[in-house]
Design a protein around this nucleic acid. Structure first.
Lengths: 250, 250
DNA sequence: GCCTAGGTCCCGTGG
DNA sequence: CCACGGGGCCTAGGC
């Protein structure tokens, strides 16, 4: 249990020192900005980080109930509550946390943390595929040598053995509607720019049934692929062309 | 500073009691599952909640660097580290946090928190619009009285004064490509089911230029609208039809 | 369980 | 500054 005066002093020190600050207590939270919300009184954890990002956590779920980035944070004592406010412009938003009881305050000096190294991202998979496009299809090659490994609006752009331009979109997980419509947009755009018929190929480990139907409607192609998530490098294990169901019986 | 033995005991107690648990210390983190990652040694905060969700937080950004939901959490002492593991199947994933130094451990008994009440959601805006569709257009009415307020695949389905079916998609923020393609899918689907020409209307505060072009290409319509986020109820302030640029000069 | 879509999405990147 | 798309997206709701 902290008096609001004590609490306020500790909180302001921690914020000034860009420490990781944790405040636990009974509070009521209001948010107004991109939406509006009220969080009824209850015991919660307020986390304020050195970059001024702040979040209210309940004892469930990964995501905080309320949060804000790049806000100006202030702390004031009221009659029956310690009020922590976070405000920002652009977009205009504010959170007010009314602590009616402060159970605990902790603050920690943190080092500037080294960053996460992630493997198996879409970008990495795309790069791996690009190393050998024959994985996908015999005779497929980057559209222009000098921009072979460049990423543009589409994940990959190549040319098939018949000289057609091929737009390739890679997804690291089961492809859905949006993957298909995205590829469709890219293919149409490339077709318009170059003025020639363009193929569109979606490469993903799986594809949802309805998305597959849409893809075939658009005349696009689907290749499934397997990959093994590794460290430090993810490996493409195989790519397999999935014929549109219609042509499977021709 | 905690000995690993002390630390382990406190941690296991807190987890068993479904308390909110915070562990601060110097650690190295490995993740393997949907992707893979390594987080180099550094001082971080591990948060484990009563529902077994866990997250590693650095002193910046809202989002944790590593996290997991619905995992089985265990704690063991090794030679030079206290290892906290989170594992789950479906999908198969694991996080291992190697604490080389434990600076602090805190745990809090939390009440079952009341839930956030949010205002200004897409759903709420949609409901508000539905109350008076003439806001949108003279003579527009729900397609079927009895399912007037039902939400289906599309936000709203109505009938205009000429008897055309109208599919309406509402967005609470600036509409992008995906809003347009989503509406297009819905409209096409409704058209196919009913076998009659169907209008598609996108209602959003703004729309991105390229998305607008795509929308007009599809022959869909765009209405801009203003709303005031309120509490407890958000208000529609006005809806305005935006003519496709082509017809503006006809 | 899968599918679908919303989110105060967050976040990085490029123009 | 805004547009755009990825994300181990997370989360809720339907079926």
């Amino acid at each position: 249990m902290f008096s609001f005066g004590q609490a306020r002093q500790r909180i302001e020190e921690a914020i000034k020192g860009k420490q990781m600050l944790l405040v636990v207590g009974n509070c009521y939270v209001e948010y107004w900005g991109r939406a509006a919300s009220k969080l009824p009184k209850g015991k919660r954890l307020l986390m304020i980080k050195g970059d001024s990002s702040s979040a209210i956590h309940q004892n469930r779920l990964l995501r905080p109930t309320n949060y804000m980035m790049n806000a100006r944070i202030s702390c004031e004592e009221q009659d029956n509550a310690l009020v922590l406010s976070a405000k920002k412009l652009k977009p205009k938003e504010s959170i007010k946390v009314f602590f009616y009881r402060v159970d605990d305050i902790q603050s920690y000096e943190m080092d500037s943390a080294a960053d996460l190294r992630l493997f198996g991202s879409e970008r990495e998979l795309s790069n791996e595929l690009m190393k050998d496009l024959s994985f996908l299809e015999e005779g497929l090659k980057p559209l222009k040598q000098e921009q072979a490994f460049r990423k543009g609006i589409a994940d990959l752009i190549a040319e098939d053995k018949d000289g057609n331009i091929v737009v390739i979109e890679v997804k690291r997980r089961k492809a859905d509607f949006s993957a298909v419509t995205q590829l469709q947009r890219y293919a149409k755009q490339v077709e318009k720019i170059n003025g020639v018929k363009t193929r569109g190929i979606l490469v993903a480990p799986e594809i949802m049934k309805n998305a597959r139907d849409l893809l075939e409607n658009y005349g696009l192609e689907y290749y499934s692929f397997d990959f093994e998530i590794g460290n430090p490098k993810t490996k493409i294990k195989g790519v397999q062309k999935k014929q549109p169901t219609i042509t499977e019986f021709m």
